[in-house]
């Protein structure tokens, strides 16, 4: 849409990167405020930041590797440089790395995940706006009022045609994440934040994939996209985790009554 800001002297400022950066900054500021309001100990806070920043950096590598697997490409250095990224791959990699580092540093994993989920959502909201400006992750052609026409050089115009209006799926996702953020922060119990996010985002992503028009890749089946398979896993993991926690809390309550 508007991928570069021309600063003159042949300096083009990539807006996609800028918005990812803004998202990470606001995410970290929000995390800081949460740590202060919950009066988290300094060492836990520091360990949390260390594990989070390592996870974020490795998540970009994971996002690239997952995209290469989704597209059925080989994983070489050149492919890693030239290939795209997928959020689902990034979030899975970050989750695994975050879990491992927290385990090593003896930080309560469930607490840590629940603490960082709102920050992840903030970063994701801005990241999707960056996608919109970069012209990637576009939707199917549409005639509805919110359809957008991309510039002639944008990937959407190259793929769909320059006079075609398409769904701004990036903005739908941003809007959904804002609503999800408000719901999680206002109405959810602290210990369920991560699971509600997984169920909510997984469900949304499953359906939004049907109106995505960019190359979705293929894995296991061609009926649904790889991101939809991951979304189903997210939802199942979230539901099972909440059920297990509910079962154990009832059991311990019943034991305490005797």
């Amino acid at each position: 849409m508007y991928p570069y800001l021309d600063l003159g002297h042949n300096i083009l400022f990539p807006l996609y990167n800028l918005f990812i950066g803004i998202g990470i900054i606001f995410g970290l500021i929000y995390l800081d405020r949460q740590c202060n309001s919950l009066k988290i100990k300094f060492l836990t806070d520091r360990n949390l930041h260390v594990s989070l920043i390592i996870s974020v950096i490795l998540s970009f590598l994971g996002a690239k590797i997952f995209e290469l697997i989704y597209q059925g490409n080989t994983i070489t250095l050149i492919d890693l440089y030239s290939g795209g990224t997928t959020f689902m791959g990034g979030v899975i990699t970050a989750g695994i790395v975050f879990f491992l580092i927290n385990s090593l540093l003896k930080t309560n994993n469930l607490f840590a995940f629940n603490l960082v989920v709102p920050s992840l959502m903030i970063a994701h909201i801005f990241g999707r706006i960056g996608c919109f400006l970069g012209g990637c992750c576009y939707g199917n052609p549409t005639n509805i009022f919110c359809g957008v026409k991309y510039p002639e050089t944008a990937p959407a115009s190259v793929h769909l045609g320059s006079s075609i209006y398409s769904h701004p799926t990036q903005l739908y996702e941003s809007f959904f994440l804002i609503v999800c953020f408000i719901v999680i922060e206002k109405y959810s119990l602290f210990e369920n934040k991560i699971f509600i996010y997984l169920i909510g985002y997984g469900t949304f992503r499953f359906f939004i994939e049907f109106i995505r028009a960019d190359e979705r890749g293929q894995i296991l089946t061609d009926l649904i996209s790889p991101s939809q398979i991951t979304s189903i896993l997210f939802v199942l993991f979230g539901i099972f985790s909440i059920l297990i926690r509910f079962y154990f809390s009832k059991k311990s309550a019943a034991t305490n009554n005797f």
Binding site: N17, L18, I20, I24, I25, L28, I29, F42
Partner: peptide, 22 residues
């Protein structure tokens, strides 16, 4: 222990990092 109070290094580091890659 001593810790900082300013968000400016964080803002500069992250914006610099995301622009440093391209």
């Amino acid at each position: 222990k001593e810790r900082g109070t300013s968000n400016i290094p964080m803002i500069m580091g992250i914006i610099g990092g995301v622009l440093g890659l391209p």
